[in-house]
């Protein structure tokens, strides 16, 4: 056994011998060590990340994909602010039980305008990738105000304060402009009218609401999300965002026909 293994292990032994000797010299030079660490640690990240930007198939083409409206983006920012991602994923994996529980598995295209992505890492609560229009606006508002009134077993914190908080629409043009700077194709017009569009989307049957349809498409949900026409609340924004989750493109349903039965 030994005579058989020895020649096999020889190259490895020679490698480690050489490695140890080289290291014995290297460890006398702090800057040499610095350079070696950066090179050794740099290779893996570069090989795994750089091609994701250059290989076209990484993100599917979704021509029908629309952008978040200013109100939905504002809702997304609230979702981030409250740390919803800590308990809810937005990434349905390509596993049978997940597809049956939540819907078609998530595609890279769906989050291509998500800066940052909110795929999540933990499901203390269920996945939300296909939450949009699954429940009514009223259900969402009542659930966010008092989760245990609707789902007695729930451990979700309540977000009643969102109803009383007026939405900051002033900062929306800046926010959309920053998003354009990182690659989301908002037009000048969308940025200029971001504040008005945010108000319009939560106030149906007004002139401002028409602007939302013009810029973001006829399918856009324009409703009194929080049930009140008094003012645009943070609740309006968050519910508008929750109602659009999984509905920016039809691509997942097209390439994953719903299984029979």
């Amino acid at each position: 056994m030994k005579t058989f293994l020895k020649p096999l292990l020889k190259p490895f032994a020679a490698f480690f011998e050489g490695h140890a000797k080289a290291h014995y010299r290297l460890e006398r030079h702090s800057l040499g060590l610095t350079a070696a660490i950066i090179v050794a640690a740099g290779i893996g990240g570069f090989i795994e990340i750089a091609p994701l930007f250059t290989i076209d198939e990484t993100v599917e083409a979704a021509p029908d994909m629309r952008l978040y409206t200013p109100l939905e983006q504002a809702g997304r920012d609230i979702y981030i602010r409250e740390g919803c991602y800590a308990c809810h994923s937005q990434m349905i994996r390509a596993l049978r039980d997940e597809v049956e529980r939540y819907g078609p598995y998530s595609l890279a295209a769906e989050s291509q305008y998500d800066h940052p992505m909110l795929w999540g890492s933990k499901r203390t609560g269920p996945d939300l990738a296909r939450l949009g229009e699954k429940y009514s606006d009223d259900w969402h508002v009542r659930h966010l105000v008092d989760p245990r009134a609707l789902v007695p077993e729930s451990v979700m914190p309540h977000y009643a304060f969102l109803l009383d908080a007026g939405l900051d629409v002033e900062s929306l043009p800046d926010r959309l402009a920053a998003l354009r700077a990182v690659g989301v194709p908002y037009s000048d017009e969308m940025i200029a009218s971001a504040s008005a569009d945010a108000i319009g989307q939560a106030l149906p049957d007004t002139d401002r609401a028409d602007g939302v349809f013009d810029r973001y498409g006829e399918e856009t949900a324009v409703r009194l999300f929080d049930g009140s026409a008094d003012r645009v609340s943070e609740m309006d924004a968050l519910v508008a965002y929750l109602q659009v989750l999984g509905r920016l493109t039809d691509l997942p349903a097209q390439i994953q026909p719903v299984p029979e039965g």
Binding site: I49, T58, Q112, H115, W119, A178, G183
Partner: peptide
């Protein structure tokens, strides 16, 4: 990219799958 120099909010340079991998 910060949404403005007078506020805390910023948007990641990366999005979607590239952002997930970088993160």
């Amino acid at each position: 990219v910060p949404a403005s120099w007078t506020g805390a909010k910023s948007y990641s340079a990366f999005s979607g799958v590239q952002d997930a991998m970088t993160q």
